[in-house]
């Protein structure tokens, strides 16, 4: 009884990439949610048979391309996050919405921290604490998605 197909996953990831490519500027750039990561986490938790660590890794690679950073930095961070998401996925389904949100927020912070550590190893400077604003805006977007019809409504049931 598969309600979500691979098409949905890739279409949503393409859409996330498109949002990521919008020419953000100034404050909007600082507050830009990580659309791609949210899409990946959503599918990892909801449809782990379609979206696994490899998908997350590839999504990270796309983000590396889009930001112009070194190949593999976001990919590694996304893969690590995907691993944590997948390993707690079954338990998470029993949690209520706020516990799930807290866990997702932890995943977002972890991804950003991993990317930062990798960048610092690469010789970049610490960008300041407002770097973590991305996680806050991302979790707000997550809540919006979860409480909106997209998040909860099951696709038409076919049997």
């Amino acid at each position: 009884m598969s309600t979500v197909s691979l098409k949905h996953v890739y279409a949503s990831m393409l859409l996330a990439l498109l949002f990521q490519l919008i020419p953000w500027e100034g404050l909007a750039l600082e507050l830009q949610p990580d659309f791609m990561l949210l899409a990946v986490i959503y599918w990892l938790l909801r449809a782990p048979h379609l979206c696994h660590i490899g998908t997350a890794w590839f999504a990270g690679l796309l983000i590396d391309l889009a930001t112009g950073g070194l190949f593999g930095q976001h990919a590694l961070a996304y893969a690590l996050t995907a691993f944590l998401a997948v390993s707690y996925q079954r338990r998470l389904a029993l949690f209520n919405i706020w516990q799930q949100t807290a866990y997702v927020f932890f995943l977002l912070l972890l991804t950003q921290s991993t990317v930062m550590v990798l960048k610092l190893f690469g010789g970049d400077d610490f960008p300041g604490w407002d770097y973590y604003l991305h996680s806050f805006s991302s979790i707000l977007l997550w809540l919006v998605v979860i409480f909106s019809p997209i998040g909860v409504e099951a696709p038409p049931h076919k049997s």
Binding site: R46, P48, H52, G54, S87, L92, Q100, T101, G151, V152
Partner: peptide
């Protein structure tokens, strides 16, 4: 209150493909 991620897939009883840890190590 809506439940997030409601249409839950029935969890696979048997592991499909390589384990998450193996995948993580490979992709890392």
């Amino acid at each position: 209150m809506p439940r997030a991620l409601e249409p839950q897939q029935t969890p696979a009883f048997f592991v499909r493909g390589p384990s998450p840890l193996a995948r993580l190590v490979f992709f890392s």
